[in-house]
Each structure stands twice: as structure tokens, then as C-alpha cells.
Design a protein around this nucleic acid. Structure first.
Lengths: 243, 243
DNA sequence: CGGGCACTTGAAGACTTTCAATCTGAGTGG
DNA sequence: CCACTCAGATTGAAAGTCTTCAAGTGCCCG
């Protein structure tokens, strides 16, 4: 068929790490869903909101954040195509996070009930969802370690690496180019720095030839050295299953 | 019966948030398992290790950490009774984290296969495990926000609050006392600070009467004000299901 | 009683923030 | 087509927070 099924990003994600039968993929693609299109900056999930749908990013980028008592925003994660914004748990209370589109965003909303039914009927799908949950948790913990024991350059480099890994299906390579979906203020809120310091850190990275910049378009001359500086491990994004 | 079943902490955890039938609880408690006792400082999970057992903390505290390239340790999470150290996913690769006992620790090792069978046979248990995964993820994200947009006092206060919430079944109250399972060096590695600064921050908290100290024994005169300073929300530890 | 580990303390210096402007590019309306 | 506007990006200087380095203290355990 010439037009890809809209839920393809989800199917790819769930099948990337383990074997799923044709029948199960078919069941997954047949699940009822509704596609939503949002423009950059629009809210996907609001704090305190209760949703009875499972949201999947189809294309574009979003970020998840919380606010401190002083109104400071902290970005907690970035989401791209295939990411499940809320794990399908029957007991989830109101959302603790806000999720906002960074770029024009396409999202699939699958009724929670359908998702739970799918999970219960097909063990391989359940396993895929578990793997996804495990990945999310590991990424979040990677962010904790990133913020805690790494200097400004390392932190910024790490986020850039993550975005590269999400953009390029095979991870980074020398000379690869990405357009950062995050402004410098966003980077600041994601790394616990100030915009001023983010700006200076980006310049420092540029002067060390770790990156080239042209507005938000970033080129990575040698992926290896950037990944090393960032201590970035690609295991969460590169498919684990050997080809 | 006079002697509690060893897996009681797990059962309590899974039933705290949703309804589980007698039959399901019985199945859970009947799952084969092996109890391990570790002394403080012992390794529970090593980095790169592959485990085919699901590990549950029965009593005591443990912490999870990763190392940066420079050998700096960062503590990523703290685990207490009822916590599941590795989510039962059939596809999990080698562990990315180390887990180490902070105090004398009792851990139950449930064969992964048994856990998966249980998960597949009893939907309520699967749901409980999902809720647990969701909680872990939310706590991890809370740590990210904690490290990113909070000052030294707030960060330390937050960890103290978490430990209080884990120790006291009903959360903190005025005058409650806990013995921190973490040394000042551990607190430093958990908050991204230096031990020197942790020390000074603890003293500052004491001088503001947020805490009283006597070695690692901490008394909280007014829970409310500490929780406010820490911006601590107890939702993950307090049972959600109304009595 | 000695050793070791955790904790405490002081002073100097590095890294980040804060505050306040200025600059730039993209989009708007005249 | 150009002036206008606005958000994002950039810069400088001063002030803080936090780290580093180094040394001293106290407590537990063998």
C-alpha cells in the first residue's frame, strides 16, 4: 500500500525489541484511535488532567515539564515519534506533568479501554509495552545522572545526542545535521541552567568543534567525540534486535 | 497466623492502589521465591549483570546508582520495603544500574518466569505492577525536577521527606523521627552536591529549625513546613485508595 | 587503644546566576 | 517594499552559590 498506516510509529516501536506475530501487529493497527494535530506550543496534556485515552506521538516533538513552587519550569523529558505519552495503566490518577508540543505534532489518541484490552489479549503487545515502560524509566534515570554529575557542556551535549538519536533512525554519524526542537530557554529548563549559561555553553561547544551552529540547525562533525563528551549511550534508541 | 508471610510487603504494595481478590493475593503469596539477606554495603545488582529473577525489597533500604566516566557516582533512586528493584519485563537486557544495600537488607528473588506467569494469569496483578511502574517513573521524574530547579536546601529537604514518607506508613507528622539510611556522602551523590556543601546545608536546615539532628537521627518539628520547603507531594507513598 | 570512616570547618577559587542591555531574524501591517 | 514588533539569541559585569583543597574532630569497632 502506498499510504502508511497512521499507527505505524507505534507498531515499529513495539516490534523493535521483540518478536510480534503478524496477527498481533494487525490487531494493534486495527485498534480504534483518533488522530489529533497540534501546532507548536499547544498543550497536549495539562497538569491535573485525567485522560481516558492513551496518547502516542506519530510525528513531531513534545516535551514534558513540571513547575516548581516559584513558577520555575523544569523539562523532564522529550518525546518523539513512537513515544507513548501516558502508559496504559487502569489506575492512573490525574497527570502530574504537562506535555506541550515543541513542533507541529501529530498524536494518536487510543481509548484506554481498547489499549487495556489489547494488552490483555496479546501477551507480546503487553511485553512490548513493558519494554517501553522500562526504557522510559531508564531514560529518566539517565537524566537524573546527567543533571547530577555532569558539567554544563556535558549536559547540553547529552540532550543534543538524545535528539540526534531520535531523529536519525540509526543514531548519529559524522556530519549529521539536526534542527533542535528546543530553544535555548528550553534547553536551560531541561538542564537546570540559565539561558545565559546555555548560550555560553553552546558557544563553548562550538569553539571546541563539538558542534557547528546556524540558528537551531546543528551539525555534528564527529559523532564519536560528542557522544564521548556527553557520555551518551544509544541503547534506548537503537533497535536492540539484531537485523 | 502469628508469623507474617515474607512476601507481605509486595502484596501490600500491589493491593494498596487497587482492588485485588483473595484468590489473586493467595496466588501472589504462593509464588516461588527465595529470600536473601544482605548486610549494609553489599551489592544487590551489579552493572551489566543479567538477572532472571525479579527482586523485591522486604525490609531495609537500598540505593541505585550509576557512574560517570570520571568515576563519579550518582544515586538515582532509593528503595525501601515493597519496592520492586527490576520490573518484570521479558526483554530486559543487562542492568544499567548498580543497586547496593544501605542498611541490612532482606530481598525476595522471584524467578522471572513465575512473575511473568503471574502477571499473565491475573489481570489485577498485572494492573498492580503497571501502577508500580508508573509510580517509579513519576518518582524518577520528580527527582529530575528536584535536581534541576531547586536549591541545595530544597534538594536535601526533598530527600529527607521521601525517606520519612517511606518510613512512616501514614507519611510525616510533627515530631516524627527517622534515621537516615544515607551518609552525607550518599546525600551528596543523590543531590549532585559535594559532601562539604551537604554538611553546610544540613546545618542551615537545622538552624532554620526545619530539622533537628543527632548523628543520622533526624527529627522533624513541623512536617508541613519541611514538606513545603521541599515541595514534596506524598501521593506516591500514601495509599491512594480511601480507607 | 589505634585505625578508619564519617563528619566538620576554613579559605580561596571556579562555575553559574543575576541583572540589564543590545542584537538579530522572522513575521506584520502600512 | 520598508518600518515596526517581538521573541529568541547574545553580551558584559557584578554577585552568589557551590566546589576544591586541606586539615581537624568525633565515633565506632576490632
Amino acid at each position: 500500500m502506498s499510504v502508511a498506516h497512521p499507527l505505524t510509529p507505534l507498531a515499529q516501536r513495539l516490534t523493535a525489541r521483540l518478536d510480534v506475530s503478524q496477527e498481533e501487529v494487525a490487531a494493534l493497527l486495527a485498534v480504534p484511535h483518533q488522530e489529533r494535530r497540534l501546532s507548536a506550543g499547544a498543550s497536549v496534556v495539562k497538569e491535573g488532567e485525567r485522560t481516558n485515552a492513551c496518547l502516542i506521538v506519530l510525528s513531531g516533538y513534545a516535551h514534558r515539564h513540571r513547575f516548581s513552587a516559584k513558577g520555575l519550569r523544569h523539562i523532564i523529558s522529550i518525546h518523539g515519534a513512537g513515544d507513548i505519552l501516558n502508559l496504559p495503566s487502569p489506575q492512573s490518577g490525574p497527570s502530574e506533568d504537562c506535555v506541550q508540543a515543541l513542533t507541529p505534532l501529530r498524536v494518536a489518541a487510543i481509548p484506554l479501554e481498547s489499549m487495556l484490552a489489547l494488552r490483555r489479549a496479546y501477551p507480546a503487545i503487553a511485553d512490548g509495552l513493558w519494554a517501553e515502560a522500562e526504557t522510559e524509566l531508564s531514560i529518566a534515570r539517565g537524566w537524573i545522572a546527567n543533571m547530577g554529575r555532569r558539567d554544563a557542556k556535558g549536559r547540553i551535549a547529552h540532550i543534543i545526542c538524545e535528539i540526534v538519536a531520535r531523529s536519525c533512525p540509526d543514531g548519529g554519524f559524522d556530519g549529521c545535521v539536526v534542527t533542535l526542537p528546543l530553544s535555548q530557554a528550553d534547553l536551560a529548563d531541561a538542564t537546570g541552567m540559565t539561558t545565559v549559561h546555555v548560550n555560553r555553553t553552546l558557544r563553548a561547544l562550538e569553539q571546541e568543534a563539538m558542534i557547528l551552529r546556524e540558528r537551531r540547525r546543528v551539525t555534528i562533525p564527529t559523532w564519536r567525540s560528542l557522544a564521548e563528551l556527553a557520555e551518551f549511550k544509544a541503547i534506548h534508541w537503537a533497535p536492540r534486535r539484531a537485523g
